[in-house]
Simulated scan of single mutants.
Amino acid sequence: MIQTARRALEVIAAALVVGLILVTCVDVVGRYLFNAPLRGAYDLTQILLGALVFAALPLVTARGGHVEVDLFLSLMPARAARVLGVAAAVVTALVLVYFAFRLGFKVEDDVTTGRATQGIGFPLWTLGAVGLVSCVASAIVALARKPE
């Protein structure tokens, strides 16, 4: 099941990158060759990029791909390094849960006010909800991942 979820997120992330490329190409070609830019290209780019970040977050967490500074880790005993790895995982999970918590307020506010993008009217709460789910999933992955 985990492999299926990972593969699905990889496919979604790849599709989002392709979508970003297509939106940019269509907008540039339309703008410079036909004097007709893609309507809502700016909104679409923002939405796709935000969705890409949230789709990739659990993948990056699972691979241990977040930025780390480990200047002294190689000088420490293995047990101390493991303890620091567990502590880092807990801190990462707590930060991600906090992000999810704050996104929950943002989603509630966006639903209540009906906020949407200006160009195409895309409801912003949907992207916030995706981010909330992504942060919760990433926090779980951070805790479940074995420290190196």
Rank of each mutant, 00 (worst) to 15 (best):
G119K: 12
F101K: 07
T45C: 10
A87H: 06
A87N: 08
L48F: 08
D109W: 08
G65R: 01
V60H: 07
T113S: 13
L38A: 02
L38V: 13
F34Q: 10
P77M: 09
L59N: 07
V95L: 15
V95A: 15
Q46K: 06
L71I: 14
W125S: 01
V97D: 05
L73W: 09
S74F: 07
G65N: 01
D109N: 13
V107K: 04
P58D: 12
E68M: 11
A93V: 08
R79H: 09
A87I: 12
A80D: 12
R63H: 09
V53N: 08
T117N: 15
F72T: 13
R39T: 12
L57F: 03
A89T: 00
P123Y: 04
V86D: 11
L49C: 09
V91P: 02
P37V: 00
V133E: 01
A81K: 06
L49H: 12
T117G: 06
P123K: 02
A55V: 03
V107R: 09
I47P: 01
R63N: 14
G114F: 15
P37R: 05
L49N: 08
P77K: 13
L59K: 01
A80W: 12
F34W: 05
F54C: 04
G50F: 03
V28L: 12
L73M: 09
A129R: 05
F122A: 05
A55C: 04
D43W: 04
A41V: 04
G40Q: 08
G85L: 10
L38M: 11
V29D: 00
R82C: 07
F122G: 02
G114D: 10
R31W: 06
P77Q: 11
A55D: 02
L96I: 04
V111I: 15
A88F: 11
F101W: 15
V60Q: 00
Y98L: 13
V60T: 05
V67S: 14
M76F: 06
R82N: 07
A100T: 01
R63T: 11
L59E: 03
V60D: 10
R102H: 13
E108K: 05
L96P: 00
L127I: 05
V133G: 08
K106R: 11
L73C: 09
G104R: 05
Y42K: 14
F99M: 15
L75D: 15
A88P: 06
T117P: 09
V67Q: 07
L75T: 08
Y32P: 02
W125T: 00
A36M: 14
I47C: 06
K106C: 10
V90M: 13
Y32W: 11
L124P: 00
D109L: 09
G128N: 03
L132Y: 01
I120A: 10
L33I: 13
W125C: 01
I120R: 13
E68A: 14
E68R: 14
Q46R: 08
E68K: 12
T113P: 11
V133I: 03
A36Q: 15
Y42V: 12
G128S: 14
P58N: 06
P77W: 11
L103C: 03
R63F: 08
R82M: 07
V29A: 07
